[in-house]
Write a protein that binds this DNA or RNA. Structure first.
Lengths: 237, 237, 237, 237
DNA sequence: GATGAATGAGGCTTCATTCAT
DNA sequence: CATGAATGAAGCCTCATTCAT
C-alpha cells in the first residue's frame, strides 16, 4: 500500500488479465463482460461530480455509450447502481486495510500512520472520496443507501480501527483508552478532511494542505494514544 | 457555558427590539414586518427536518401562514431563502464564543473544554446543527452559500480556536504545536459529530453517544495538547 | 325516473344554478369552480373510450384545456381521478335508486321492473356503462379501484336489490327465495348486457336488442320471483 | 358429465397423438415440435394469472424454457400469442357440450342443469375461465380476438342453448318463451360468474359461493322456464 | 433455428416559479 | 402587498420488439 500513488478508480489493475485471456472470444461477448464495468465507471464519475440525486441515469447511460434501458439490464434501479459503484470503488480498499491490520509486523504507531496515510492515498486523495462525501451529504434523503454504506463501509472501518487500537493496547504500546469512543474520534478528522475538500475547498482562500493536516493529525493522535515515553523509561522505582 | 442552556433557534431573544419598537403601529403592519422572520423560521424547521432538496416551498409557505407566491416577494428563490436561514441561525452564535475566549479567566484546558462543550450546547445539540450539516452537504451545489458560510462561520471559528491555542502555548500550558494545522484537526471531530448525527444516525445500530464522544474527544485532545505532567512536577515518587 | 330519457353524463342538470348565481364573481373565480368538473368530464370520456390503463393523463389534461400539472392540483393521482369520475357519474344514480326503493308505492313487481329499466336508462344505455365495463375489465390490475368500486357501487347495489326482494317477500308478493343468492343472479344479466355492449357489440352480426333483452329478463325474473297466481286464487279449500 | 372432473388446460388429453407419432425422432427434434405448445401453455398460465397487459413476454419465455427472441419465431407479437392461447384453450370445450345436447336422454330440466353445471366444471371452475374473462375484458382492445371469440365460442354457445330451449318447448316441458331473447338472459349469469370470480373476488368481503350461485340460478331459471306444475295436474284438491 | 443483449419510446408524478387578479 | 391557480420541464422506470451472432 505504501508504494502505490493515488489512483483514480474504478478500473484499477484488476481487469487486464481477464481482458487478455478472452482474445479468442468474439468481440460481441467481450463487450458483454465489459459493459457493466463501463456503466459503473460512468456512474462513478457522474455521482462524484454531481451527487446522487442530481445524477441522471440518462447521462450515465450516454457516458457509458449505452441506452437508458440497458442500465436496467444490469442494475435494478438507481440505488443498486450506486451500490455497485460503492462495491467496486470503496469496499476493496477496506479489504486491503483489513489485511494490513491483520498481518502488520511493525509497531502499532507505525501501523496507525500507515493505515491513515494509506487511506488517504487510496481514498481521500482520489475521486473515491467524492463517494464518501456524497453518502454523508445525501444519507438522510436516501436511507437505503445510508444503511448499505453503513454496513459495507462504516461498520467495517470501525471494526478495523478498533482492532488496531486493541492491538496497540495489548502490546502495551497504547494507553488503555475507551476503544469504541476513541475510534469515532480518530475517524472524524479523516472524514472531515474529505468533507472539506469536497465542500469548502473551492472557496478557501488558504486551502487546507492535506499533507500537513495528516501529519498534524497523526502526530496529535499518537500523542493521545501512546503510553508516555517517561512511563517506559522512568517506570522503575 | 454553564449559564446557557441549549435553545432552539431562530426566534430566540433577538427579536424583541423590533417588536417593541412598532408597538404603536396597527396590528396588520406589525405582522407585515414579522412576515420574513416567520418565513425564515418555517424554512429553518423544514430544511432541518428534510434537507434542502426535499423541502417544498409550498410547505414552507403553509407553515409560515402565507401563500406560496408571498415567499417570492421576500426571497428571490429557494437558494436565497436558504441563505437567509443560515444568516439568521448560525452567525449570531459565533459572536458569543468569540467573547468567551476573550474574557476567560481559567486554565486553557478548561477554556478548551468549555468552548467545545458550549459549542455543542449552542449548536451541535440544537436544530441549528441541521443547518450546519446542510451547508456542508450542499456546499458544492451552492458555492455562494459555501463561500458565505466559510467567511462568516468557518473562518471565525478557526480564528477563535487559534487564539485559544495561542493562549495555551503562551501560558506554557500547551505544547508548542503547529497552530494552523492543529486548529483544523481539532475542529474536525466536532463537525463530524454533527455530520454523523444528521446522516447515519437513523441507521446506526449502536448510535453515537454525543456526551461520551465529546468526553473522549476533549480528553484525547488535551492529551495531545497539554505539556506532559511529568515535565511539570511529579517526576519522582 | 320513468320520465327521463337516457342522458350522457356527467355534466347533468345539476350545475346551471350555481353557475348562474355567481354572475357577479370574476370570470377567473368562476373557472376555478368549473375546472374540476371539466377535468372529470374529460377523464370520463377518455376512460370510457380507452379504459383506465390506456388513458393518458396528458390527454385528459389536453381535453380539459389544462396542463398536465393542473390535474394534480385537484386529484392526487390517476386512481383518485378515476374515483372522482365514478363518484360523479355512477354513485348519484345509486342514490336515486335507493330512494326509489325506499319510497315506492306500487307493487314489488312494478318496482322491480322500474328499477331495472331505470338502471338501464340511467346507466346501461349511457356512456356511464363504459365505466362499469372498465371496472370489471381492469379490476384485477388495479385492486384499489376494484375495492373502491365495490364499496361505493357494488355493495350498495346489492343492498338495494336485497331490500327490493325483502319488500316483495314481506308483502307476500315474492316467493321466499334465498335473498343473497338471488340478488347475484338478478344482477348478473344486467351487468352482462353492459359487458356485451362494450366488448362484442362491434362484431356482432345480429346485435343484441337491449329492449327485448330487458323485457325478457324482467318477465323471466318475475316468473321466478312471483308467488304463483294460482296460489292466490286457488288458495282456499 | 358426472364422469368428468374439472381439468386444468391446456396440455390435456389432446396432445398424445403428435407426441406418439414422432417417437422415432431424436429428442431435440421432438422438443422442437413441442416448443409452440410449451409457449402457449406458459402464456396461458401467465395471462390467467396476471391479465394481458401485465403479462411480460420475458416471463412467458422463461416459463416455457426458451429465450425471449424465440417467441417471435412462432408468434408475430403479443396479440397473436394471445389468440393462440384462446384457440387452444377454449374452443375444444364447446364441442363436448354440443354433443351432449344432441344425445341427451333425460328431461329438458335435467339437461339444462347438466349443461350449466358441466359448463362450470369444464370452464368456469378451471383456469380456462381466466381466458374467457380476459377476452371479455380486452375485447375492445383487440377486435380481432373479439370477433374470433364470438364466432368460435359465443355463437356456438348461443346455438346450443337455443337447441336446448327448443327441445324443452317441443317436448312440452318449457313455456313457450322467446328463444333468442331468453338464450341471452340465460347465458348472462354464467358469464357474469366468471367475471366476478376474476375481477372482484379478491376484494369481496363475502365472496360469492359458486355452488350456491349456480344452484340458485338453475332453480330460478327453471322456475321461469318450466310449465307451471298446476297446469299439468293438480288444479283441484 | 435459437439466443439474449440492446433498444428507446412512453407514462406518471413532482415542484419551483410565474402572473392575473 | 398578497394570493393561489396554473404551468411545464424533468426524471425514473418498463417492456415489446429487434438483430447481430
Amino acid at each position: 500500500m505504501a508504494s502505490s500513488t493515488p489512483t483514480d478508480p474504478p478500473q484499477g489493475a484488476a481487469d487486464p488479465p481477464s481482458v487478455a485471456s478472452d482474445g479468442a472470444k468474439p468481440r460481441w461477448e467481450r463487450r458483454k463482460q465489459e459493459r457493466p464495468q463501463e456503466m459503473i465507471a460512468a456512474a462513478f464519475t457522474l455521482f462524484v461530480e454531481r451527487g446522487f440525486a442530481a445524477t441522471r441515469l440518462e447521462d450515465v447511460a450516454a457516458r457509458a455509450g449505452v441506452s437508458k434501458g440497458t442500465l436496467y439490464l444490469y442494475f435494478a434501479n438507481k440505488q443498486e447502481l450506486f451500490k455497485a459503484v460503492v462495491r467496486e470503488s470503496i469496499v476493496p480498499v477496506i479489504d486491503e486495510a483489513d489485511a494490513m491490520v491483520e498481518h502488520y509486523q511493525g509497531s502499532s504507531a507505525a501501523l496507525f500512520a500507515d493505515i491513515m496515510m494509506g487511506w488517504w492515498q487510496r481514498i481521500g486523495a482520489t475521486s473515491r472520496a467524492g463517494i464518501a462525501k456524497l453518502v454523508m451529504a445525501e444519507a438522510d434523503n436516501f436511507p437505503e443507501i445510508a444503511a448499505f454504506y453503513h454496513d459495507e463501509v462504516i461498520k467495517r472501518g470501525h471494526a478495523m480501527i478498533e482492532r488496531l487500537l486493541q492491538r496497540g493496547i495489548e502490546r502495551g504500546e497504547f494507553r488503555s483508552v475507551d476503544i469504541a469512543a476513541t475510534r469515532n474520534v480518530l475517524m472524524a478528522p479523516m472524514l472531515m478532511l474529505i468533507m472539506w475538500k469536497h465542500s469548502f475547498a473551492p472557496c478557501l482562500a488558504e486551502p487546507i494542505d492535506p499533507a500537513a493536516y495528516l501529519q498534524s493529525f497523526v502526530d496529535f493522535a499518537l500523542h493521545g494514544l501512546l503510553v508516555p515515553a517517561v512511563a517506559k523509561a522512568d517506570g522503575a522505582p
